[in-house]
């Protein structure tokens, strides 16, 4: 049988979960960022899957927008990471704890 919609959704959920786990567990800022990208991608997959299975263009258009946003976010996020690195001399997010009250 052909891949069902539910398969795609399940896969997407798994990838998303992996991303979430990575965000929480990883200490390196860049690694955290990459896990966030993974989460975004899994959501993209969901959108495209729905668009394909319901014959609706909106899903893919939305994915397009999401990708553009993700690109912008990558730029800014990495800028922040660089600035963080300049300040703290370390990419460990546990070291960026100035917000501690």
């Amino acid at each position: 049988m052909t891949p069902q919609l539910s398969w795609y959704l399940a896969l997407s959920a798994v990838m998303f979960t992996i991303g979430v786990a990575g965000v929480i567990l990883k200490r390196n800022a860049i690694s955290m960022f990459m896990c966030i990208e993974l989460m975004l991608n899994s959501v993209n997959l969901t959108f495209v899957a729905f668009s394909s299975f319901f014959n609706n263009l909106n899903g893919q258009l939305f994915v397009f927008i999401v990708m553009a946003v993700a690109a912008a976010e990558a730029a800014v996020g990495l800028g922040i990471i660089i600035a963080l690195f300049r300040n703290r001399e370390s990419l460990d997010v546990d070291d960026a704890n100035l917000l501690k009250l």
Partner: peptide, 24 residues
């Protein structure tokens, strides 16, 4: 590609793999 969204697939490779990951 499997889902019949070639444009998205192309954009995925170009933007994500090609731009964002290069940036990272």
């Amino acid at each position: 590609l499997l889902l019949g969204a070639p444009f998205i697939a192309a954009v995925q490779v170009i933007v994500y793999a090609g731009a964002i990951m290069v940036l990272v």
